[in-house]
């Protein structure tokens, strides 16, 4: 059973999160151990399993970007992030740019950060954050709608575009994280990536 099926939903990306939350509470009550105290141990174990599955499914679906990530994995038939069959191609200019910023950052760290040095990091950081927002907007906007509207023959193309957007997001997020680390500003909860 995939996460969409847990909620009785079709494999579509546009989900009403208010409705999703309502269903989540409803199903949670249904699977709550308190209501199953009289049940046999096997049945209690099943209930526990169902409630764990429900929680995982809810976590994957409530956030529209996590939802896209999950859909991509699901469509590729793999459960984890490891072992992607087809690697998304990152735009080469993006890699080039990320590499250059990292190099500049490494140098700036060696020299110690004075006011000018900080300013030189803040500018690219802010620029990259705008791009990250754009990428997020693309994922939850046109790409989400594109998937839901796609005929079966078009799905691979939409999937590839989503993978590319997710990869771009990962590159941007990593560099933003590193810049924020260097600046001593961590924007808690903004970028979730942690490398080490």
């Amino acid at each position: 059973m995939d996460h969409f099926q847990v909620f009785g939903l079709p494999r579509r990306l546009a989900i009403d999160t208010v409705e999703l939350q309502r269903k989540f509470y409803e199903l949670s009550r249904l699977h709550h151990p308190d209501f199953h105290q009289a049940a046999s141990p096997e049945e209690q174990a099943r209930t526990l399993e169902a409630s764990a599955r429900l929680n995982t499914a809810y976590r994957a679906l409530r956030d529209p970007i996590a939802r896209v990530e999950y859909l991509v994995r699901l469509e590729e038939g793999r459960d984890t992030k490891e072992g992607a069959t087809v690697k998304p191609k990152a735009p080469p200019e993006l890699l080039e740019e990320m590499f250059e910023i990292q190099e500049a950052l490494a140098e700036a760290k060696v020299g110690g950060l004075d006011e000018a040095g900080r300013a030189a990091l803040v500018a690219p950081r802010d620029r990259l954050m705008v791009r990250l927002e754009q990428e997020n907007a693309r994922l939850v906007g046109p790409l989400t709608q594109g998937w839901d509207a796609a005929a079966p023959a078009e799905r691979q193309r939409v999937l590839a575009a989503m993978k590319e957007a997710l990869a771009t997001r990962a590159y941007l997020g990593t560099v933003i994280d590193d810049l924020n680390d260097a600046l001593g500003e961590s924007l808690e909860g903004y970028v979730t990536h942690r490398r080490h």
């Binding site: 490891e82 992607a84 998304p88 990320m98 590499f99 990962a170 590159y171 990536h193």
Partner: peptide, 12 residues
Amino acid sequence: LVGAPECGDVMK
């Protein structure tokens, strides 16, 4: 010059 989309790291 390559990158890992899983984590956003880059390597030359």
